[in-house]
Design a protein around this nucleic acid. Structure first.
Lengths: 362, 362
DNA sequence: GTTAGCACTCCACTCGCCCGAGTGCTAACA
DNA sequence: TGTTAGCACTCGGGCGAGTGGAGTGCTAAC
């Protein structure tokens, strides 16, 4: 018995998944025959028996209809499903969630998560840009008072929270400027990850006075990295979990909700979300016991040409993959646009100034 | 029939509430007689009938035990309940949630919310300090490049997110310094609220060049205020809702969870949380329909001598008020301590520097 | 290869029943 | 007069039998 499914089997499988996704009730042969395909229920029944033997379908009990297995979902996601377009209303709805405020990174993430969860009726999340991959646009030590300077770190993803750095009181304008030059020449355009090693290398070559400052900067970036790494994954619409039959068992629902409250767990749940392409993780493909009957769909948004963070959806394996994909795709584009443009606005001027300054002095 | 309850009625009422809080099951006269008090069940029954007539108890149905009414809870909270001390383990548990990271405001709020929700099995929240009331410790315009300066605003509650301010390129060191002096002399020590009006007044008296910069600063503070005002109320342990019998109705649970996801709703739910004292809002005392069978307990934490933000708990009216109160009280103190000390650490030095600078030059 | 027909299975639902917890009332007791 | 024992009554929850319906697998005919 070949594992390759003939045309009819594929059509039937698609119909079963489609129906099961919308109704949540095991699908019988009659339903398929009446609602979707023009073969008689007996024919369909025969094919369904084959599909069951091949592991694509399962029966909850003898006299029930069939439910798709995880294998079926995988096939469905990769080959069968019709990728639907969002209609005008849906687009409007998504747009309406993002407002002027959404230029703020935080707010944008919240709004996006809300938008996605509302549109899909599942739980949405937004992962902030991976800090290690973020490129430094500008790094500068700004004198505040004698003995105290402010480290301003501008990255692709906006302004890193600034911190105060203690410098020795003898440090004057000239020393600061030379450090700034050093910083800018060596670190701009590199990823934070690279910067750390570069800074450490740099320190060996520098005189004591500078060394101390560089050390402080290194510490500061490190601690911020640490902080940002455990940075919140923004979750939206967790109450949507309870909308679906799968979680009418309250203890199951609670466990899952609770898992999503912990940043660590959530992080590991979403660990697959990295690349440019859509990632779909179905049921047991998930690392967590608790996610056994969940699926996760993710996609990365793009800032400045490179994927940085990602957005996604957690829902029951019986999830409307097609619609979720469309929503995520649309939102990905919107976010990429917004982030790229706000990056332009807020940073370009600063960048240009520095270029002029640097070239002017060389 | 006097509304004043005799000693015995009070004792019985307390026993009923205590029992109902722990078991969640309507309390019968026999239970009270066996587990709590040494009168016969018949006696207790008689008293219970009185209490029911007085509106302190209710019967779900004829042959069930009694449940406390909201009136009973109110009396219980105000007079009857034994305020319990936390035992060593509980204190340890609370402490263990707060780590070194908790010096960061954000992180502290998260940790605190988690700690409270874990300790109480209810849903906890932390309201950040009310931004209008926050006092400015230090305000300074730091030159970054020509034409661009960084506005650093240090407040009681830590560093306000800094923003870039465009200044005219002719603005040199002297102009900046004079503006800085102006800012510091006029604005330090005032609340943000006051600062806004003061800045507006100031602008009339200033020359065009300064005026432009002040305008930009005003805008920046305003927009930040707006941003901070809708600032997140941190919620912890919302999944705890599902732990309690009250929310075994999944639709009810979902509605409540969903309400707590919206910042606006949440804000209005917690609107009562202002003063120094504990606030307990029981059932229908809540403004929201959806909160009909919820209670909210809140208390403010203290920074620099004044109540600023608050922490609290949302749970079923059948809530362990006594324990919740103890936990909140303990956490309030811890947070006040942490916030006050971190304020000291991070800001004092900066403050002193500025004092010296100012007095030195006058 | 497809389809109609049919017997069979099994879940979900309803109905009636009983049990037990708790009540309210009455009468006896201190 | 206040307290308690006793008792009949009420009502919800749990259990089991019975039923209907959806869906299956198999067989035989087309």
């Amino acid at each position: 018995m070949a594992d390759i499914l003939n045309e009819r089997k594929l059509k039937i499988l698609r119909a079963i998944v489609d129906d099961y996704i919308t109704t949540g009730v095991p699908v019988g042969s009659r339903t398929i025959s009446k609602k979707y395909l023009d073969w008689s229920s007996a024919t369909i029944r025969n094919e369904m028996m084959d599909l069951e033997e091949l592991g694509y379908l399962a029966q909850p009990h003898t006299s029930a209809g069939r439910v798709p297995s995880e294998r079926a979902y995988r096939l469905y996601v990769e080959q069968l499903m019709n990728v639907s377009e969002l209609n005008g209303d849906e687009v409007e709805n998504l747009k309406s969630h993002l407002s002027a405020r959404s230029r703020d990174l935080k707010q944008l993430f919240h709004d996006a998560a809300k938008a996605i969860s509302d549109a899909t009726t599942y739980t949405a999340f937004v992962m902030p840009p991976n800090p290690l991959g973020i490129k430094i646009r500008n790094i500068q030590l700004v004198p505040v008072t004698s003995g105290l300077a402010l480290l301003v770190l501008v990255t692709d993803a906006g302004i890193f929270k600034d911190t105060f750095i203690r410098v020795s009181p003898e440090f004057g304008q000239e020393e600061l400027q030379s450090i700034n030059k050093l910083l800018q020449r060596n670190l701009c355009g590199h990823s934070l990850n690279g910067v750390l090693t570069r800074l450490e290398g740099q320190m060996k070559d520098s005189v004591d006075d500078q060394r101390q400052v560089l050390d402080a900067i290194l510490d500061s970036i490190k601690s911020q990295l640490f902080e940002e790494e455990s940075q919140e994954i923004v979750v939206g619409g967790s109450s949507n979990l309870l909308k679906h039959r799968e979680y009418s068992d309250i203890e199951k629902a609670r466990a899952l909700l609770s898992a999503m409250e912990s940043r660590e767990t959530l992080g590991s749940i979403l660990q697959g979300a990295k690349g440019l392409q859509f990632t779909v993780t179905i049921g047991n493909e998930n690392p967590h016991e608790i996610m056994r009957d969940c699926s996760v769909v993710t996609v990365s948004y793009i800032v400045d040409g490179a994927p940085t963070g990602s957005i996604g959806v957690i829902g029951p394996t019986r999830m409307n993959y097609s619609h979720v994909t469309s929503v995520l795709n649309y939102m990905k584009n919107m976010m990429s646009d917004i982030l790229s443009s706000s990056y332009d606005d807020s940073i370009k001027s600063l960048e240009e100034h520095n270029k002029n300054e640097n070239t002017g002095k060389e």
